[in-house]
Amino acid sequence: MPDSIDPAKKLAEKFKQQGYLDQLKRDVLTTPIAMRENASPLEQTIKDLVVEVVKDVVANDEDLIFKNRAATSAQVESQIFKGGYRKLNEVENGINLEEFIQEAIKDPKLIASIKTNLESLVD
């Protein structure tokens, strides 16, 4: 039993139990990216960028595809995760994913919807 009981945490847990957090996450990931072609959602955009990054990496070292795929994937992933997905921004038509996520989180509309849901739960 925790020594301190934060009602806000409890409320947040309740919020998550209702599935609102997953909904928010889905909303963020399906946000269309304007600067991309066909305004594809964020998820697809990330996938496309990742493919391009991988292709660039393979182009630099062609032997990568003939090596152990799992180990190679881990190396490439770690390169992508570095610096807040810096590599995704360096690609042509890339996006600053970290910034995008921060903006999405601080979206007033998002916050407003969260508050609305929380208030309904408090009641």
């Binding site: 947040a12 996450k25 989180i105 408090v122």
Partner: peptide, 23 residues
């Protein structure tokens, strides 16, 4: 205040969830 604090927690968790999901 309660709601505000809860919003803070939720946003923090949302960020974590997004990062995890993306990765």
């Amino acid at each position: 205040e309660l709601v505000q604090a809860a919003v803070g927690y939720i946003l923090r968790d949302l960020e974590t969830a997004l990062n995890t999901d993306i990765r």
